[in-house]
Design a protein around this nucleic acid. Structure first.
Lengths: 341, 341
DNA sequence: ATTGGCACTCCTCGGAGCGGAGTGCCAGAG
DNA sequence: CTCTGGCACTCCGCTCCGAGGAGTGCCAAT
């Protein structure tokens, strides 16, 4: 029985602390939440929770504050994802529906997410390696200079230039184009790259491989395996950092630095890429000590939620139920849009 | 004679204040800069400069601080653009040379700029309206669904989908593609849009305009006049905000908000678009009261420095000579890269 | 025009003192 | 065994005060 009450106390403390930003004491707790026991009882519970590592005191004779472990328990067992209001759903839909291309979808997503959660939002561009090739276009800019346009299912467009040794006739160009598309179109990136590679691998006693084809394929394969573009993320809502208030140097500075480091962001989001659920990383649970006072709430989006990730990063003291709901809602909506287009 | 010394005093104050962040007093001035006069003399000069509005006192009996007007005079008449060291030049070159496409150039520029100036860097994407059409590609995804790829001289690629009423045969597609390219290729955006429009304007007694052509042209023209994409900027180096130190609410918060507002950024940069020189906006000289304690240093880049703008925004208390040099150097280098590719 | 001297202003910093919120513990009641 | 009221204690945050110091403005002298 007391076990149940203790959890209720922890939940109440998390809620109050998130709301007020101040350590919460026993007396205030009994008043705000109608627990029908005395402050002294609560104090005993608090002491127990502190022993177990769910609460901490900033200093003796101050109220209690949840620890990372406390938040973790709260997120895992004490909270339910708060459903979005229809107004919020409509806001997401209205805002994202106007998007014209992939860039636009990503940029708008970042904005809604930042606005809904009042946190810093991060959206990863659809992963190149998980897309399929929709089409490859080859255009002659001059007789010896080709423009390659690689169009992917995710809506991403990559372009590359190729300089040729010799001039290329129109019919040769057409042949080249169709051979390449035959090999690559519809395939997942890795497969397409392999198929293209096979096109130019010399066969003993087979026909000679044209130099132009080799050059084009080399460039395409390189573009396909260019994981740099996998590493692209968009960040928004940094103005929300202003609400951090206290402790500029200890929490905002490292966070700003992390936001500039795309690699760090990707690793943070990456953990979330999994199957369907919203992932929450609290405080020092990750490998980055500098971000000890921040949490990351993220999830995957796209087919199987595996195309890429999006989420937010904010102080450990945040409204987890609401934030998780917003992240999930936006991810779902983005998935739907990508699916339709 | 004293007039000259007064300007020297102003210059010295600006330099010292930028270096130390502290109001500078008469005694410290004579010591650091070997002015061969006594502190009392300097005090008289300072009083005069204050009367003229170039200096201010935080409070009675503190040292002097330059006003916006003081910085302005300093920038206009008392400073020379500090030449970049060869190491810095090499850093810019080395960093930007690796860029593979337009996105990459822009992103890398932001980074170098932020790193060189230790300020928040802003780079505007090459303006769509000032580019020419390099090529239009039309690809049939299905018999009734076309993908249009619009490739511009600035390296920008726009893509749009078109849904057709009726199926389109391969030779019709080829004809359509060549008619469009004939009309648009090589032209500046506005001209290309007009030429395309003319293609589908019905001529009395002329041949009927194919529905497919109309649909494609409409979409292209819309994409060309889509000024939304004109409004794209990239921001970097926000971690440098951490160095603002003092006055979070009065300077950093509004700045962060401005950085999120692309429109504001564009207007700030926009003023710089002019001919060749580096523009400096100091404090309240612009229309944004919220940014009263920040300055913007910007310049154009691209052909005639008119393609788009880049620059930095930072506290009015900044190293103007060094910053201006960095902005100019990066702009020149970016122009060169865009020119070559 | 420049300088040394001098009185004055006002900020900054450290220490002392106080009020209050909150705790821990204990003894007693259900 | 659990809960409760009571009580002493701790420590933070605030304000007040006074000393120290940097810098100024003005004046009389050169």
């Amino acid at each position: 029985m007391q076990e149940e009450r203790r959890l209720a106390v922890l939940r109440a403390i998390v809620q109050d602390y998130v709301a007020t930003e101040e350590p919460v004491g026993s007396k205030a707790l009994v008043e705000r939440h109608h627990l029908n026991v005395s402050p002294a009882t609560i104090r005993n519970d608090m002491a127990a929770l502190e022993d177990e590592g769910f609460l901490a005191q900033p200093h003796t004779s101050a109220g209690r504050v949840p620890t990372d472990k406390g938040y973790r328990l709260f997120v895992d067992r004490l909270s339910t994802v708060k459903p979005m209001t229809t107004a919020e759903r409509r806001a997401i839909a209205g805002f994202l529906d106007g998007a014209v291309d992939l860039d636009d979808v990503v940029n708008r997503s970042v904005r809604v997410l930042a606005q809904l959660t009042r946190q810093v939002a991060v959206v990863q561009y659809p992963s190149l390696s998980r897309s399929t090739v929709r089409h490859v276009e080859v255009v002659a800019l001059t007789p010896t200079r080709l423009l390659l346009v690689l169009i992917l299912s995710s809506g991403r467009v990559e372009q590359r230039h190729v300089e040729l040794e010799a001039e290329l006739a129109d019919d040769e160009l057409a042949a080249l184009r169709s051979r390449i598309n035959l090999a690559a179109t519809g395939e997942i990136i890795a497969v397409a790259a392999a198929a293209l590679d096979a096109l130019v691998r010399p066969v003993p006693d087979g026909p000679e491989v044209p130099a132009a084809l080799t050059a084009v394929v080399d460039t395409l394969v390189e573009a396909m395996s260019d994981h740099r573009s996998d590493e692209r993320v968009v960040v928004g809502g940094t103005a929300n950092l202003a609400r951090f208030g206290e402790s500029f140097d200890t929490s905002i500075r490292p966070l700003l630095e992390a936001l500039e480091e795309q690699v760090v962001l990707l690793r943070l989001l990456g953990e979330a890429s999994g199957g369907g659920a919203v992932t929450v990383r609290i405080g020092t649970e990750g490998p980055y000590e500098e971000l000890s006072s921040t949490s990351v709430v993220a999830t995957g989006y796209g087919p199987d939620d595996a195309l890429a990730s999006l989420g937010i990063v904010g102080p450990t003291r945040m409204d987890y139920p609401g934030t998780m709901a917003a992240v999930r809602a936006v991810a779902r909506y983005v998935s739907r849009i990508l699916d339709e287009s």
